[in-house]
Design a protein around this nucleic acid. Sequence first.
RNA 1: GUCCCAGUAGCUCAGCUGGAUAGAGCAAUGCCCUUCUAAGGCAUCGGUCGGGGGUUCGAAUCUCUCCUGGGACACCA
Length: 582
Amino acid sequence: MSFIKTLEKDLKESINELGYDLDKVTISISNRPDLGNYQINDAMRLAKVYKKNPNEIANNIVDKLNSDKRFVNVNVAGAGFINLSLSDEYLVQCMNKMIEDVYNNIDCQREKTIILDYGGANVAKALHVGHLRSANIGEALKRLANTLGVKTYADAHLGDWGRPIGLVMLELKKRKPNLPYFDSNFNGEYPKESPVTNELLMDLYPCASAKANIDEDYMEEAREMTAKFQNHDKGLMALWNHIMDVSKSDIKRIYDRLNTTFEIWNGESDAATYVPELVSYLESQNLVKFSEGAKIIELKEEDDDHEIPPLLLVKSNGTASYQTTDLACIFERVKNYNPDEIWYLTDARQALHFEQVFRAAKKSKIASDNLKLEFIPFGTINGLDGKPFKTRDGGVMTLESLLDLAKEECEKKILPNIVGEERDKIAEMVGVAAVKYADLIPYRTTDYIFDINKFSDLEGKTGPYLLYSTIRMKSLLNKAKDAQIDYQLVKTVKNEYDRDIMINLINLATSLTKSYESRSVNEVADYIYKLTSSYNKFYSENRVLDEKDSDLRSSWLALTNLVLNTNLMLLNILGINCPNKM
RNA sequence: GUCCCAGUAGCUCAGCUGGAUAGAGCAAUGCCCUUCUAAGGCAUCGGUCGGGGGUUCGAAUCUCUCCUGGGACACCA
């Protein structure tokens, strides 16, 4: 259990001993640092319940706190605020416990399994800016959950069964009508060689999509093509497999650049195999109705305060809608993984869709009462004009070109003596750090403005700043090793600078827990900045290696090492790699 | 028409399970380099928390209402 949580627990017992009944004491980071490191506001709450003077209660609590060696400078101020600081001895002790095992200051969650759905990449379509946030936030939440002891599976949930594929197939047919995949009389073996490359796919989809938007006949053909492969037409399935292979490896390559990994590479097509079983199950439950030639599920409830449209189960042309696929996917996941929770990371605009799917899942008992379905929306990325982010000529910005842009921008700022392949590799790491940190620092649901110049700046709250600072810690410790200076434990609190670092380190657990509970790693992103900048302040005020007192020097090195390891752990949670120099 | 989200410093964003004097980065101004990566650090300047009412000892935070902006409302995903 973390230090703060332990203190809270002990304090709760003390307060109970005073005769006050309360479920929880909260020791929060002080917003009056001049009065103490932490504050407790519970006295005012108790005063209300017990109809007493808050100052009187606060003073009773303070008497208890004063006998505790872990606290110093305990005082009451204002309306009944209790302020306190941690003693130097206790801080040193905590630091060494963290050096021994950082889990001495992390609060794990109860054991459970969560499936995270943060992919949604469309096969045959380029990954674009819209996929950046789901990848970054989803991956970070997964890593955070793992850090807190939760078992997770991330599912790429590829968009591999919808109309985009039909469009691509149709456009390919228009261009190369003689391919055997389109000939229903073809009985031979289909070629092993793929008829499409990724470059071709990247051209086919936008072209087909543009045509379909203005040409209703073309759109109708696309619908037919989609229905045909969804009915497992032999030739089209052979083609589908080729498209999948080509597209999937490209999608993987780009997710790799973002340090985004999936344990499950399923897609809508996998869920689609469960659709017939799903529909007949739902029919047996008497939940399916006919409406305008389609099969639907009514989702209205008596106590609704707003309208909920029905879920479209089977379209009038007999194909499944994406609501059905998502429902089938829950069916599939329950069957294969039996998770405690499923988290859906998507753009906030899909809120209604998931409300419908979740309702249908609960109503039909596909999701038991124990299964928690959670929609975790995020905001959109806008350009400098405040409108959805586009390329200069107004097109959709692909994820790849965005990463290239960041890499190019960061490359300019790397040390000139780093050259060749190494330079390229470091530029990539710094570029990804710039993009990822900027994406994770705003609260999850906030829409934010993408400004690559700002994000790649080495000054300020940016990824490159964090990397630079972390590298400087590495460098310092390497110098110490070269000079054969030994360091193991933190021995003392010397000044306000190292003290401030220690207080920040104590707060690690709080920040991790907060982020997990809000499903937004912005808290972690902010925390790592605070910790790092407290270290930088220390660094500029104290010459570690030149310190004459060898005990103090090794204590500082041990602290540096602890900050470094904490930073690396947190960067890893955010999905950011740190080079050894830049 | 119904519903959802947002409006906080010149700019970009935190803070929102009610708590003290509303924070950070950038920009602006002024300091600190024979220095462990100065790609750093320090200081100053900067706010009717969209407007108005309500609840409360206490409201950026809860509530009502209005204004502004964005978004979602079955046969795209």
